[in-house]
Design a protein around this nucleic acid. Structure first.
Length: 903
RNA sequence: GCGGGUAUGGCGUAAUUGGUAGCCGCGCAAGACUUAGGAUCUUGUGACUUCGGUCGUGGAGGUUCGAGUCCUCUUACCCGCACCA
């Protein structure tokens, strides 16, 4: 009987939708399991074969856990606010709402084609007012909270006001003073800092939205600018975000990425007396190398540091101002690319080294960052390469502090060796000197221990339209929260999505954008706002009274398995953990880590094809001959290329300018060049899963994507092996039929058949649980080959087989399940029990090798029970009694293993 | 520069976690059935070989009776961070 995957898949996709097979309830006697995918941003390009990789894996796991008897929450939604839809709106005037809606339905259609087992009744969309009501709600809660350092958690701001009142710092303040004071404490606060300003996008960006000085979305230059922005006090959670990593099952690399991003460094703050000749100040710097204090030969301030003004002496004023202006003009990108050019200027002031008492000059240089530490450093050129480069350029003194180190051509940065030139530290090793120096500094009142984090507060406002409006209005310029009862504060309609002529965000165009007669905030929230707590909303998506009810939250708790890409390592995955911890502090949720286990699926790269056009001509040269000409490489649509051979007819039709193109062929063919690149529309290398489904079916696509290799590995898409997987499914299908009739018997299976089945069950179980889906697929193929050659037709074998395969290839399995006479969906079946006893053989040979030379075989007699196998002594004492000079006592037979020799 | 990872046939990969290296699939070769094959089935397929064997998991050492797996050094590639004091 023919395996008609198209009608089978259509039939079951409809059946699942109509019967709500995968609807999941919050009440169940079963244990819960929560499997989550990172929800997609619905872009205009649609899904390509890379997207479903993680979705297929999570779907397999969900289906598997259902069969294992769990109540599985497996939802899907859309991260629908964001820049691309808005950029598109600006260009076309089309409302982002409309394009977003269209994109979502395309995504939905594509996902349905693959047969995912989502409970679509729980779908969330971040741009839906009923959803973003809770994003705004969380913001209000953060606005109304502060971080209590003593309890080490967030508390309502009313508690802080109580404390301030007791300390006499509250009563008598004006409204504005009160507001300004509280802004220094609120978790969500408005503050003026240097931000990443992207003029092209007309908005500020968070640190994780900027890479190499360019915006991640769009790749436009970004500059540093001081602006007043809404921010989230993520930095208050730095230590807890770091500690929490220890108890979650994420990959080491991902945890490491978060650790780096949080960037904890332990050191101390040290007070330096500085003087500009007329006034003396105390200036604080941060260092992790207090042991090098005796080698400090100059100080450096960041150009943006507030100390610059105070310490610039009149005779250096011109020069310093010129330098500051020069630095200020540079874009972030220029600053990064010119990292190795040393620039700086002398302020005219001097500082006193608190240990040696020597006067050292204070310089200003862009290599010191305003945002880290105190924006000022002590420079130890002998032991820091950056200070070294600076000292060499401006001819400053270099004092080595480690015996025998050579600083004639580079600094000695390693933390090893014996100290010298260092007063009381002389003779100590560096490892001893570091704590000794800190103790000394603390003991003499010139500084104190300090832990610094690289993690900054998250800039939370965007000067854009397509995002959540802030529930904030301004009463006489003082920011006030919108009443909770008035949420959601809906995004107003506007007719033009560009910023206003005077640089106001687009919301300033909205008519009547006011609340209680006062103007509302015109910025909107960033992309990560809506994605920070979406996993909580899935637990209770239709609740109008709470983000998630207490019952629902206590049942589902947190995500057991989260699958998604690494690209969110320092964005979403930090913010989401922060957001969750805040809600935990305030008692709204019961778990302080949102994602227990996280698996990163690798990227599926595209394989691009190129043609080579001779410069200035409309002639194209085949790849092997291209070196004989001056050519330019042009991406061609991979749909016009088969096995790297170009379909010339299709190419001529592709673009009008190629209609009369000419070709220089090799062996009568035009051979294209190829490369592995990111799958993207602009490189014409996108493989659409719809096409694969049409040609081979969703089950083949699912199996094939898993078969491609380990889930965490990145790999290029190639369709070469897909026929093999498809063939396997056809073979599987044919096992059930003789001609056009079902040929399944109720005979008792043979021991060989049972062995084959249980080998598969055992392997599938352990492999699925360790996410080795590629080896599971291999195991299926082996099993089907074995059973095929045994001409297996027994229901007792085939039925469990269908169940085991069903998480991977659900459509074909449902169809067979039904034909086997079952009325309920296979989702309600239970995973077959693995029975080791079927694997036992009557006789088996255990070859053992040692010394690389001698080999012998051990044969266990028929009928010897496993429990007695331990006591079997090797038959030939001359061969094995001595192994590497040690006597062999016994040989233990362990099922599934070859042999274990015990000495 | 710092951190993480990877390296196995022509290709994607596997190896019971220290125990017969190369499972499964692709590709390739031969054969069968065919008017035909980009269909299906069977068999073979790491290299060398004087057919006895020998060599073989990026490279060089080491531990071990035994190493793809553990340790040291080294090379190449991928990813992340990067004047973070």
């Amino acid at each position: 009987m023919e395996y008609d995957f198209q009608s089978i898949e259509k039939k079951w996709q409809r059946y699942w939708a109509e019967n709500k097979t995968f609807k999941v309830y919050n009440e169940s006697s079963k244990p819960k399991y929560y499997v989550l995918d990172m929800f997609p941003y619905p872009s205009g390009a649609g899904l390509h074969v890379g997207h479903p990789l993680g979705y297929i894996a999570s779907d397999i796991y969900s289906r598997y856990m259902r069969l294992k008897g769990y109540n599985v929450l497996h939802p899907m939604g859309f991260d629908a606010f964001g820049l691309p839809a808005e950029q598109y709106a600006i260009q076309t005037g089309q409302h982002p709402d409309k394009t977003t809606e269209e994109n979502i339905s395309r995504y939905r259609r594509q996902m349905d084609n693959i047969g995912f087992s989502y409970d679509w009744d729980r779908e969330v969309r971040t741009c839906d007012p009923e959803y973003y009501k809770w994003t705004q709600w969380a913001f209000l809660k953060m606005f109304d909270a502060y971080y209590d350092a003593e309890q080490d958690k967030a508390r309502p701001i009313s508690e802080l006001i109580g404390k301030l009142r007791q300390e006499g710092k509250w009563d008598g303040l004006s409204e504005r003073e009160k507001s300004d004071l509280l802004m220094n404490y609120r978790i969500a606060y408005q503050g003026e800092t240097a931000v990443n300003w992207c003029p092209e996008l007309g908005t500020v960006l968070a640190n994780d939205e900027v890479k190499e000085g360019l915006s991640v979305r769009g790749g436009f230059p970004v500059e540093q600018k001081k602006m007043k922005q809404w921010q989230l006090r993520v930095s208050a959670y730095a230590e807890r975000l770091l500690k929490g990593l220890e108890e979650i099952q994420w990959s080491d690399s991902l945890k490491e990425m978060q650790r780096n991003w949080i960037g904890k460094s332990e050191g101390c703050e040290i007070l330096f007396k500085v003087s500009n000749g007329t006034i003396d100040y105390d200036m604080t710097i941060f260092t992790t190398r207090a042991d090098t204090l005796f080698g400090v030969t100059f100080m450096v301030l960041a150009p943006e540091s507030e100390w610059v003004k105070r310490l610039t002496t009149p005779e250096h004023k011109d020069e310093v101002e010129k330098y500051i202006a020069y630095v200020g003009k540079k874009t972030e990108r220029e600053r990064i690319s010119e990292t190795h050019t040393v620039t700086g200027v002398f302020s005219g002031s001097y500082a006193v080294n608190p240990l040696s008492g020597k006067n050292v000059p204070v310089w200003i240089s862009e290599y010191v960052l305003a945002g880290y530490g105190t924006g000022a450093i002590m420079a130890v050129p002998a032991h820091d390469s950056r200070d070294y480069a600076f000292a060499r350029k401006f001819d400053l003194q270099i004092v080595p502090l480690i015996e025998g180190c050579d600083v004639s051509s580079e600094s000695f940065d390693a933390k090893e060796g014996i100290m010298c030139n260092s007063g009381f530290m002389n003779g100590m090793s560096v490892k001893q000197a570091i704590p000794a120096a800190i103790d000394y500094v603390e003991g003499h009142g010139i500084g104190h221990r300090k832990v610094n984090y690289r993690l900054r507060d998250a800039i939370f406002s965007r000067q854009r339209y397509w995002g959540e409006p802030f529930p904030i209005y301004y009463k006489d310029g003082i920011p006030m929260p919108v009443d909770e009862a008035d949420l959601p504060l809906k995004l107003p309609e506007i007719d033009d999505f560009k910023p206003t002529e005077d640089g106001q965000p687009p919301l300033a165009r909205a008519k009547d954008w006011t609340y209680k007669g006062y103007p509302l905030e015109t910025s909107t929230m960033p992309g990560f706002a809506g994605s920070s707590a979406y996993y909580l909303r899935y637990m209770d998506p239709h609740n109008c009274d709470a983000l998630v009810s207490k019952d629902a939250n206590e049942y589902w708790r947190n995500v057991d398995l989260y699958i998604g890409g690494t690209e969110h390592a320092t964005g979403h995955l930090i913010y989401s953990r922060f957001w969750d911890k805040f809600l935990y502090d305030m008692g709204y949720v019961c778990e302080y880590e949102p994602f227990r286990k996280l698996v990163n699926q690798g990227m599926i790269q595209g394989r691009s094809n190129f043609v080579y056009r001779i410069v200035g001509k409309n002639t194209f040269v085949s790849c092997g001959l291209k070196d004989k000409y001056r050519t330019t490489e042009i991406h061609v649509d991979i749909n016009m290329v088969k096995n790297d051979v170009l379909d010339i007819g299709a190419f001529r039709k592709w673009r009008p300018e190629y209609a009369d193109a000419e070709f220089v062929l090799e062996d009568g063919k035009y051979v294209c060049g190829s490369a592995v690149e990111k799958m993207s529309k602009s490189m014409f290398n996108v493989v659409n899963p719809d096409n694969v489904c049409r040609k081979y079916g969703a089950d083949t696509l699912r199996l094939y994507e898993m078969f491609l290799g380990p889930i965490e590995q990145s790999k290029p898409w190639n369709t070469k092996g897909i026929d093999g997987v498809h063939r396997f499914l056809r073979k599987f299908w044919n096992m059930f039929f003789e001609g056009d009739v079902l040929a399944v018997t109720d005979n008792t299976p043979t021991s060989l058949e049972l062995k084959s089945l249980h080998k598969l069950i055992g392997k599938a179980q352990s492999d699925i649980e360790s996410f080795s889906f590629n080896t599971t697929v291999s195991a299926f193929m082996i099993c089907i080959n074995e059973l095929g050659s045994l001409n297996c037709r027994e229901r007792a074998i085939l039925e469990p087989l269908v169940i085991v395969l069903s998480p991977f290839a659900p459509h074909i399995c449902e169809e067979l399940w039904e034909r086997l006479g079952h009325e309920e969906s296979i989702s309600y079946a239970s995973f077959p029990k693995y029975e080791e006893k079927y694997l036992k053989e009557d006789t088996f040979e255990c070859p053992v090798s040692f010394n690389g030379k001698v080999r012998f075989k051990l044969t266990l007699e028929k009928g010897i029970p496993e429990s007695e196998a331990e006591d079997i002594v090797l038959a030939d004492p001359n061969t094995v009694h001595w192994l590497g000079g040690k006597p062999v006592r016994k040989v233990v037979f362990v099922p599934g293993r070859i042999i274990n020799i015990v000495f």
